[in-house]
Design a binder for these strands. Structure first.
Lengths: 212, 212
DNA sequence: TTTCTTATGTTAAATTTTTCACACATTGAC
DNA sequence: GTCAATGTGTGAAAAATTTAACATAAGAAA
């Protein structure tokens, strides 16, 4: 019986991956949980606990092999296999993602950009043609789509998300400004920029108070 | 002695605010923690605990007045006062933010957009002129800047952030793909899109395994 | 080979977070 | 005005998360 790994842990794993990538770039071959903890400003204990949820990747008396650990975390995160993404909403944010993900080496590939705005019909963003929404169904049936990124206004987002799910898409990267109501089995990752900005605002106010 | 409120709570507060905003739009005047919990898929107990960190906003036997609670949470989040934002990096993401925040009614206003790319010099995004980085210092000294959003490549992000701090900016909304090393007093809110995508990837893999 | 040092994996303790449970204030019906 | 129903605020219990502690495996030095 596999134990469920908490989302608290999952939130930290990509950060480990990021730091290990930097270490590789810096030519570092091995690292101890202690050294890593100093860099990342977390406890060494937490690093060891987190990693041991997935298995023992280190060696006593030695530490961790950076490249090996990096690859193992990559596997855990499932980025050894390609993920095909379509972006719904080819406005600024959608285009930003198209650019952004394009630069990511990992297996995330944007294979389609869709919008309702006829003015965008046929234009290309980094070599990806913007298609109209009425082409979506045929596209999804022809291509394998693993993730749909929603960068459209919130008004139609829920309806659109449910439509995508009915076409067989099971993962949504949601940038729309609301929580989607979707079937249980659908995996949703929210990026609520307004929530993020409000958190910042709260912490600014808190910091101001501290100074008084 | 004020007790420190945990970031776990702070992460949830903007979401309450969002839902209360929707309730207002729907014309709902009062709501109980139970009804709200059903909508938000969290426990009523958590809602009451969270709110009571800041004070008792409800009334026994009645529930919460939606408009009042909304305003109170707005105060808590510090969005009753205007926040002036500059965006460093006028690429797709920077422009997306310029558009995005413009549509927010709350007190967040983008007052400047900066980039190093001379090709963008002088163009306007939603009425905001893109300025070159060498104009930044004079700008910050003239205008009140509360938040700097960093939507530039990671290579220069840390250096730039420290420069901004030295100009007196104490809050950074960081979209760059790394963790900034900044003085203790600076408030940072990170939006790591690649981390978010990897979390999604992990949860997709987990869900696939579950089906097997 | 032997000894000393390093640093993991893991169990246990401490802390934080979440949920439960209920006393009692307020509402609304009659 | 009385009384049942509602539903908050809060103290306590339960659960989850984080940190500490340490036995011991592996490496390094002599």
């Amino acid at each position: 019986m596999e134990k469920e790994i908490s989302q608290a842990v999952i939130r930290r794993i990509p950060r480990y991956y990021r730091y290990l990538g930097e270490l590789i770039d810096d030519g570092v071959e091995r690292i101890s949980s202690n050294e890593l903890s100093a860099r990342m400003r977390v406890t060494a204990s937490q690093i060891r606990q987190d990693l041991n949820n997935f298995g023992g990747f280190g060696q006593q008396g030695y530490g961790y092999n950076v490249k090996y650990l990096y690859d193992e975390i990559g596997n855990i995160l499932g980025i050894n296999q390609q993920h095909n993404i379509i972006v719904i909403g080819a406005g600024n944010l959608g285009q930003a993602l198209a650019n952004y993900v394009k630069f990511e080496k990992r297996g995330f590939v944007i294979i389609g950009l869709f919008d309702v705005n006829p003015a965008l019909n046929g234009i290309s963003v980094r070599g990806i043609k913007v298609r109209m929404m009425n082409e979506l169904e045929a596209f999804v049936k022809k291509e394998r789509v693993d993730i749909a990124a929603l960068t459209m206004p919130k008004e139609k987002a829920d309806e659109t998300a449910n439509m995508l799910v009915s076409l067989g898409i099971n993962a949504i990267w949601n940038f729309a400004h609301l929580d989607l109501e979707l079937p249980e089995h659908v995996v949703v990752e929210n990026v609520h920029l307004s929530d993020s900005l409000m958190q910042l605002s709260y912490n600014i106010a808190k910091q101001r108070k501290r100074k008084e």
